[in-house]
Design a protein around this nucleic acid. Structure first.
Length: 822
RNA sequence: GCCGAAGUGGCGGAACUGGCAGACGCACUUGACUCAAAAUCAAGCGGGCCUUGCGCCCAUGCGGGUUCGACUCCCGCCUUCGGCACCA
């Protein structure tokens, strides 16, 4: 008997798959299914997280092909990014060289895992054939008024020497390197994602195939809040200060106004006054506080009086204007009305600076004015101290007061979002050049589409801490104006790599198109992606950007899709010994090691068996051994009977043991099918196959050499077909061993035989007062009444019922009888 | 602080619609095979109690509730993890 040797059979089948081009996308127009795993950054070598996500995707792709779908299952490379540039600086190797070498290595590893990709559709974002269309996309946004340049206070990572989008700052630190982010005033390119805020929020409703937590995270990130903009006027000068509030009903309770340190009016209000120096000192101190300190609840709320007053449009009262460190210029209008009685922050602030507190919402059931507030009351109630609105429930007053203000042009309903525009320029070399030219005569000029791509030059100098190498590349910078032909300078910033990855799933549908990013008809055939699989770390970043870009493409008439990903699986992490794998902890296990020791099939099987896909998984060397043992068990079983089942044609009439074996395999098939298709529970699917194999072993033990060859032939065929998506190489080898022709992966997924599941007798449970007291074998399909009778007559049950009164009997056919006694 | 997810044997996990808690795997124990070991095959494996019986009691983070019946539903709490957080 030959031994199971993955190191021999795996390369064998990988070679055959490649030669026969099995995984080329079938475009015959059957029902389609687009399975996509997030494409990787080519960092060097695959890690276990990659192995997990590809294993999940591949099982699905292989299963769905067997189910008769045309499956699109492509792979590519998110190949621009900082690590390549850092490697260039450290090791004096060009980012392109470094990147392409990594791609080669990782692609080889993916092939060794036996993943069924259509490699003809491979895309690489740093290839000019790809980034040409990323530039084209930029121009599309530019011409639609969705790309603009402005000077703004932006997040700057000193270590990466570049700016970052808001989504890319986590807890005040750079998402990539963890360095504390500072603020810089810079002229930068933005995408107007805020124009799409409402649709991005609204269409979350369409994504019921996404995990709820991801939808909630996006909802929080977009951060819609509904309220009003109210205009206060500066006493004396008549300057207007608009404020945003969600509580216009508390307008009569305003006792002060606070401006952000960056608010333009601060300078105007204090210039030339005795308070100028003090206020300026405060502003400077505040602006020096880091982003972390300023946005932390721990930081003491501080403010300073400007000396000026403004008029509350509701009651004409003058209230003092302060500058405060807790007011953010980037949200709302950069000015806040202070209502200490009904806002916790305002309350604390007012107590600290002895500002008056005026109650305007009366809590229900509390007599007016009798209680001194010890904390802000933020609940609902009836208005008091609010002139003509007294007595009105505050929920009504919200609208009524805004309507009143609107009539006088002193306010209007307003919706604000936390989401900011997407800052997309990066002061780095290894990215897609922004196709813009600056001309002294014509100003900002987009590069015409015919002149794309703007090629990233190879011959640049990398140094530590300098500005972008592009800015120092004279030949790149100097160009002529596409409009007037005069001398001009190129934009030297490159695009955020999240733009590259925001549309790649469209490119897969038409990867070699040289006249457009993709053909609409081809894109509409496949997009939206039916099942997207990737890490939860992209819950906001990549997934939000991709949704935005899809909507832009839709609006431009380039795709019918309004959302890119119908279903999303956020796969869990792969840990070891309860902790994230890391070099410093010395607990790293690599896919290479596993392939070398056990083969790809064992590794894939274990990674799917150890936990459901969305949960974190703890790597266990022992557990892998177990899966290896299981595959060897399968191998031996098939090997032992392969010849027998082929030589015998006429089988005997099946006996009870034969029927039980058939039942075991058809039940497993039913479960495997449902677990993959409906629940994505690969772990329980695999355990069902294991159970069936165990049943085959005990059948072998009972029957010895007298097995029923035709039944054995049937179940072995089912076994190989069921296992094939999980262990594709072993599947092929066993299929061949059984004397079958063609690839096992090109077979139809088998259907279970309902007759095989039939049983004559079923075991039911008898409970007394809900406690298990006995089991009975009863004929299948026995009705409730008969079951009840049998239960009551059972000797063991009588021990628990004698001398007691039977109050009630519950009988569930096929399941149980419960006797309630007293 | 707010939002969300999770908590089940020594371990990973299962129990899908309220109906046998612990499938499957790991670890462990025992037996067979062997000169021996490995591999393999077979059996056992939540805790407690005794009267050793297809016995009884306890047990799914804790405390209540609904129900004939709760890992599952409801209320309150604890712990862990994740996200957001001066957002006006």
């Amino acid at each position: 008997m030959a031994e199971y040797r993955p190191s021999v059979i795996e390369p064998k089948w990988q070679r055959i798959w490649e030669e026969k081009d099995y995984y080329k996308t079938d475009e015959s127009g059957r029902k389609k299914y687009y399975v996509l795993e997030m494409f990787p950054y080519p960092s060097g070598r695959l890690h276990m997280g990659h192995m997990r996500v590809y294993s999940i995707g591949d099982v699905l792709a292989r299963f769905l092909r067997m189910r008769g779908y045309s499956v699109l299952h492509p792979m590519g490379w998110d190949a621009f990014g900082l690590p390549a540039e850092n490697a260039a600086i450290e090791h004096q190797v060009h980012p392109a060289t470094w990147t392409y070498k990594n791609i080669e290595t990782m692609k080889k590893q993916q092939k060794m895992l036996g993943i069924s990709y259509d490699w003809e559709r491979e895309v690489t974002t740093c290839n000019p054939e790809y980034y040409k269309w990323t530039q084209w996309l930029f121009l599309l946004l530019y011409h639609r008024g969705l790309a603009y340049k402005k000077k703004a206070a932006v997040n700057w990572c000193p270590r990466c020497a570049t700016v970052l989008a808001n989504e890319q700052v986590e807890d005040g630190a750079c998402w990539r390197c963890g360095e504390e982010v500072t603020v810089k005033d810079l002229e930068q390119w933005f995408f107007r994602i805020t124009d799409y805020a409402e649709r991005l929020l609204d269409d979350l409703k369409l994504l019921d195939g996404w995990p709820e937590r991801v939808r909630i995270m996006q909802e929080n990130w977009i951060g819609k809040s509904t309220g009003a903009e109210i205009i206060f006027t500066v006493q004396g000068s008549g300057e207007e200060i608009p404020v945003f509030t969600t509580r216009p009903d508390t307008l009569f309770g305003v006792t002060y106004m606070v401006l952000a340190a960056e608010h333009p009016l601060v300078e105007k209000l204090t210039a030339g006054t005795p308070r100028e120096a003090e206020v300026r000192a405060f502003v400077e101190k505040t602006r020096k506080q880091t982003e972390i300190a300023r946005s932390s609840m721990e930081t003491e709320k501080e403010g300073i009086f400007t000396g000026a007053y403004c008029i509350n449009p509701a009651n004409g009262e003058a209230v003092p204007i302060l500058v405060g460190n807790y007011v953010l210029m980037g949200y709302g209008t950069g000015a806040v009305m202070g209502v200490p009685a009904h806002d916790e922050r305002d309350f604390a602030f007012a107590k600290k600076y002895n500002l008056p507190v005026r109650v305007v919402i009366q809590p229900p059931g509390m007599p007016e004015g009798t209680v001194e507030l010890t904390e802000a009351y933020t609940g609902d109630g009836v208005l008091i101290n609010s002139g003509r609105f007294n007595g009105m429930p505050n929920t009504e007053a919200k609208e009524a007061i805004v309507a009143y203000l609107a009539e006088r042009k002193q306010g209007s309903p307003k919706v604000t979002y936390r989401l900011r525009d997407w800052l997309i320029s990066r002061q780095r070399y290894w990215g897609t050049p922004i196709p813009i030219v600056y001309c002294d005569r014509c100003g900002v000029v987009p590069v015409p589409v015919e002149q794309l791509p703007v090629i990233l030059p190879d011959d640049v100098v990398f140094k530590v801490g300098g500005q972008s190498p592009l800015a120092e590349h004279a030949d790149f910078v100097h160009t002529s104006c596409p409009q007037c032909g005069g001398e001009a300078r190129r934009e030297t910033d490159t695009m955020d790599t999240f733009i590259d990855s925001s549309w790649y799933y469209f490119r897969y549908t038409d990867p070699h198109n040289t006249s457009a990013p993709f053909d609409r008809e081809k894109a509409d055939t496949w997009v939206p992606v039916d099942q997207y699989i990737g890490g939860i770390e992209h819950a906001i970043l990549h997934l939000l950007y991709s949704r935005f870009i899809t909507k832009v493409l839709h609006d431009a008439g380039l795709t019918a899709a309004v959302e890119p990903f119908t279903r999303l699986l956020a796969q869990g992490m792969v840990n070891k010994d309860g902790a994230k794998m890391s070099k410093s902890k010395g607990n790293v296990v690599s896919p290479d090691e596993i392939i070398a020791k056990y083969g790809a099939d064992t590794g894939r099987l274990f990674i799917l068996f150890a936990a459901p896909p969305e949960k974190d998984l703890d790597w266990s060397d022992r557990g892998v051994e177990g899966c290896f043992r299981f595959l060897k068990r399968v191998w031996r079983l098939v090997d032992r009977y392969a010849d027998t089942v082929q030589s015998k044609c006429a089988g005997n009439e099946p006996d009870e043991a034969d029927l039980a074996l058939r039942r075991a395999f058809h039940a497993a098939l039913k479960k495997v099918t449902e677990d993959i298709e409906e629940r994505f529970n690969f772990n329980t699917a695999i355990s069902a196959i294991m159970e069936a194999v165990n049943a085959a072993y005990s059948y072998q033990n009972t029957k010895g050499d007298n097995i029923n060859a035709s039944v054995m032939g049937e179940v072995l065929e089912l076994l190989v077909l069921m296992l094939a998506p999980f262990a594709p190489h072993l599947g092929e080898e066993m299929w061949e061993r059984l004397g079958k022709t063609g690839s096992v992966h090109m077979q139809s997924w088998p259907r279970y035989d309902p007759d095989a599941l039939q049983v004559n007798e079923v075991e039911i449970v008898v409970q007394v007062n809900g406690k298990l007291r006995g089991r009975l074998m009863v004929p299948a399909g026995l009705d409730a009444e008969a079951m009840q009778k049998m239960a009551l007559e059972d000797e063991r049950i009588l021990q628990h019922t004698t001398g007691k009164q039977i109050v009630k009997v519950i009988a569930v056919p096929g399941k149980l009888v419960n006797l309630v006694v007293r």
